[in-house]
């Protein structure tokens, strides 16, 4: 096992599956045509004057999917065809994902379900650029700047960890560190979501009328509520531990996915992209598949695993 908090060796099968799965999640994320065709309240790159409304215009979506499909093929085949094609592929996917979701977030409300995918794509672009620059300068591979697919995996895990740690820091900052002690008030947030679901479509929302059974139980049992929510905050705050090695990434990833599934069960708030990305890069299903196929090779010294272009 390689040293802690450093990129891991990624074999060909694992590398192929990591790329294929990320490309699939990205396509899935932008599969439906955007509901929006104009910027109402500029956010992100739209605030810098970059046009994002084009992606929501009638007739554009089919072409966007075609380009995204080509980028996905370039990205995956870049494993064999070289780092430049990898950069072109992941760069195109990052640009389309960023544009699509920036437009969705320019409507006066923030949607929190897709940032993780954008971060993973952007940090993979950064990893490619670093790898290309190092390659051009003929710098030798090191444990930190190892082969491209090891860096793609590590940078993706950095993006995921950053999302959770940021969320935990915001919770602590907003409550002066008292989030855990006040977490029993989470019951009314559960009830709020219940109400929101009812008022989304009241004519068919009878299932969400009245009081949520979970909210009622949490409100009546404040101590148990705190015990229930405490692990979530601790898990987020120490999310960076997933960078330690594959084993920690697996366990953190598995528990984070369970946390999202529990939130979905209790609050009906779903984060399918988060779950997919964590399953791919932390639980690392590609590695597990490669290991089952017997194609996971033992880690080689960093200087020996730099593939030729």
């Amino acid at each position: 096992m390689s040293r802690a908090f450093l990129p891991q060796h990624v074999g060909r099968v694992e590398g192929f599956l990591l790329r294929a799965f990320l490309a699939t999640v990205t396509l899935w994320s932008i599969w439906k045509p955007s509901r929006y065709d104009r910027v109402e309240d500029a956010s992100g790159i739209a605030g810098w004057g970059i046009d994002v409304a084009w992606i929501g215009q009638p007739g554009v979506h089919e072409r966007v999917l075609l380009v995204a499909g080509i980028c996905a093929v370039l990205y995956v085949s870049g494993l064999w065809l070289g780092r430049i094609l990898t950069l072109l592929g992941v760069g195109g996917l990052a640009w389309l994902h960023l544009t699509y979701w920036t437009l969705a977030n320019c409507q006066g409300n923030t949607f929190h379900g897709s940032q993780m995918t954008t971060f993973v794509l952007l940090l993979q672009v950064a990893a490619c650029v670093i790898d290309i620059v190092r390659h051009q300068r003929r710098l030798p591979a090191t444990e930190r700047w190892t082969h491209l697919d090891g860096m793609l995996l590590y940078f993706s895990q950095c993006a995921i960890a950053a999302v959770y740690v940021t969320s935990a820091l915001t919770k602590l900052a907003k409550t002066n560190g008292l989030w855990l002690f006040e977490s029993h008030y989470f019951a009314k947030s559960v009830q709020k979501v219940w109400r929101q679901l009812y008022y989304d479509n009241p004519s068919i929302g009878d299932a969400f009328a009245g009081v949520s059974p979970w909210a009622a139980w949490l409100a009546a049992h404040p101590v148990q509520a705190r015990i229930l929510f405490a692990p979530g905050l601790i898990l987020e705050l120490f999310g960076f531990v997933m960078l330690w090695n594959r084993r920690w990434a697996f366990w953190f990833g598995a528990v984070l996915v369970m946390m999202h599934v529990s939130i979905g069960f209790i609050m009906r708030l779903y984060f399918p992209e988060f779950e997919a990305i964590v399953t791919i890069f932390c639980v690392n299903v590609p590695f597990l598949i490669a290991a089952m196929l017997g194609r996971e090779k033992a880690p080689a010294p960093a200087c020996a695993i730099r593939p030729a272009d």
Binding site: S43, G44, I45, T102, C106, T110, Q115, L169
Partner: peptide, 8 residues
Amino acid sequence: DSYPLNNF
């Protein structure tokens, strides 16, 4: 809150 940046 400047997509994708967000303090969640």
